[in-house]
């Protein structure tokens, strides 16, 4: 097992859920597949899904819901 980070592909606002009244895509401790969506980045009013990029287990999120993030900023830590 190795620890790896998921980086934001874009600058913008990070959302952990698909809509304000919906549950989070993923929680700490969840098992994830490579193609799973872990959040959204809103850039200039367009919403882009962030994929896990690797299978494993989410150790913790490093960015909060509605946090402003930079491109390349780590947003979650996973165990692969």
């Amino acid at each position: 097992m190795a620890t790896q980070q998921i980086f934001s592909p874009l600058p913008g606002i990070f959302y952990r859920k698909p809509a304000p009244d919906k549950p989070d895509y993923k929680s700490d401790g969840d098992t994830i597949m490579e193609n799973d969506t872990i959040g959204l980045i809103e850039v200039m009013k367009s919403f882009n899904e962030v994929k896990a990029g690797a299978a494993g287990k989410i150790l913790r999120f490093l960015a909060e819901n509605e946090e402003a993030v930079m491109a390349g900023q780590p947003i979650a830590e996973i165990d692969v």
């Binding site: 913008g12 606002i13 809103e42 850039v43 200039m44």
Partner: peptide
């Protein structure tokens, strides 16, 4: 100038 990503384009 750096155009921020947070507003319309």
């Amino acid at each position: 100038y750096t155009v921020p990503p947070f507003y319309d384009s």
